[in-house]
Amino acid sequence: MATHRTGYGPLWGTVRIVVGILVVVWSLAPIYWGAVIAFASVADIRRSPAALLPQSIELGNFGRLLGPGSATQGVFLSALGSSVIQALGTTVLTLAVALPAAYAFARLRFAGSRLLLTVITITLAVPVYLVLIPLFQLATATGQINTQQGVILVLTSAALPLAIWILRSHIVTLPEDLEAAARLDGAGTFRVLGSIIGPLVAPGLVAAAVVTFLASWGAFLIPLVYANSSGTEPLTVLIPTFANKFSSDYGLQSAAGLVAVLPPVLLVVLLQKYLLSGLLKGATK
């Protein structure tokens, strides 16, 4: 026990357990319930009152979603593909554009650097809906609407400021001596970026990549407007459209939802350390 905790009363142990249970239930209940519905039979989805524990575990909903000959197989697989293309494309493009900029802002003092950094920072606060219609006009005028590259560009513009911030914050903390040594050995800027800064800033790159990937994987309003055709819509746009005659089709929504949360959940579980540092850098700097 750390010293500063000596002030706690005897109740603390109980409180700690109760809070722990509440935190876990609150965080996991929607995911748990989504999984219960995804694996439930049609009758059990409609069961009233609902039973807390799964009453049936079957793959019927997944069969309806993507089984051979299912009505939604085509659109679902296409949306899954679009989600992957858009999220990965955005991540790669964002990092490729953000890293040199972040390096310049962290290490170089050049005319207008402060102004440019300020402008880019301010765009962090520009809400998507402010640019939605003009970008829609641009995209329709240039034939970029309902194309993967079009939506990737828009997603990149949304993700870029945060990625630059995260990377810059990492680069600032790196010791300059290594770079200086490399330069004395005659290395140029791009070699410095590639061989010295690159590896050192890897945790920052991972953090920026994870944050960008999650943001673009989860984006909704942007693809709703720029990628809403059957060939380009991602999972986030497709899933809410699953419906039956009187209401949403819970079976399809939950089954597709589980597939859609798998990549982000795996990223969080596997790369939590980087994600947290990325979040902190993004939120506090």
Partner: peptide
């Protein structure tokens, strides 16, 4: 026939964004 079934509201959204760019939603 390639049938896409979707919530009624979403059809309006899809028609608007695709038609505005001169494409056919279906």
């Amino acid at each position: 026939v390639n049938l896409q079934t979707l919530a009624w509201d979403s059809i309006h959204d899809k028609v608007v964004t695709t038609e505005a760019s001169g494409q056919a939603p279906a």
